[in-house]
């Protein structure tokens, strides 16, 4: 083992630290991005033409805003958003500071995914709920989010996996994490075993998210 990955063995504690940082960045930003993304996704669906609270102007603004936020490349977003990060967190570098760009980098993407998932909810069921006297909030919580849950879980998996990808770039603002180890140590010092093991741990995280997510989606689906 020591012969195969000599540098990793000597940096065991750094690896554990980096893995925890990646998990913290992924799930810390995921929780907040989930709330924002769900809210925006639902808002898009209900205000779009033919929706239960159809509103052309609101929809058009939200739609364009979502596209705009999604078009900023993440590595640039990390820098561009720093004044806001400073305002919210009090610093622009470090693991916690990276949560702000991660949230803004992922939630518009998640909102779009949620929008698509909810659009797959049978319009007839929504109409049936309306005919039974359900209010818009009842339709959102009891119909859209409940009927759309399996798909929402599926798009959440895709989103979390993308998010793990984004955390590796956050090393550019001193966030630490597995991406940072792979680049600033493995790549910079030509210690290839470090890059390789960092990649492996990321793959394991991705597979774990995929497996748990698939299992959950299957559990709530009754097709």
């Amino acid at each position: 083992m020591a012969a195969l990955i000599p540098n990793v063995i000597s940096m065991k504690s750094e690896f554990i630290q980096a893995t925890l940082e990646t998990l913290y960045m992924t799930f810390g930003s995921a929780i907040i991005a989930a709330v924002l993304g769900l809210a925006l996704g639902v808002w898009l669906v209900v205000t779009q033409p033919g929706g239960i609270l159809a509103d052309r102007v609101t929809y058009s603004i939200l739609d364009k805003l979502t596209n705009l936020l999604r078009s900023v490349p993440f590595i640039i977003l990390l820098a561009v958003i720093s004044p806001l990060t400073n305002f919210l967190v009090g610093t622009t570098v470090g693991t916690t500071a990276s949560l702000v760009p991660l949230i803004f980098g992922i939630f518009p993407f998640y909102a779009r995914q949620v929008q698509n998932a909810l659009l797959d909810v049978d319009h007839g069921v929504v109409e049936a709920a309306e005919s039974m006297g359900s209010s818009p909030s009842e339709i959102i919580f009891r119909v859209y989010l409940k009927e759309g849950l399996p798909d929402i879980i599926r798009v959440s998996i895709v989103t979390v996996i993308s998010l793990i990808g984004l955390t590796t770039m956050a090393g550019a603002i001193g966030s630490g994490g597995l991406g940072d180890i792979a680049i600033s140590i493995g790549y910079a010092r030509f210690e290839n075993d470090i890059t390789l093991v960092a990649t492996l741990i990321i793959l394991i995280l991705v597979f774990a998210v995929q497996i748990i997510g698939d299992w959950l989606a299957k559990k709530v689906e009754h097709n």
Binding site: D122, G124, V125, E127, V143, K146, E147, H222
Partner: peptide, 9 residues
Amino acid sequence: FQHFNLMKS
């Protein structure tokens, strides 16, 4: 309705 419109969840 023609297509029942039951909630499958």
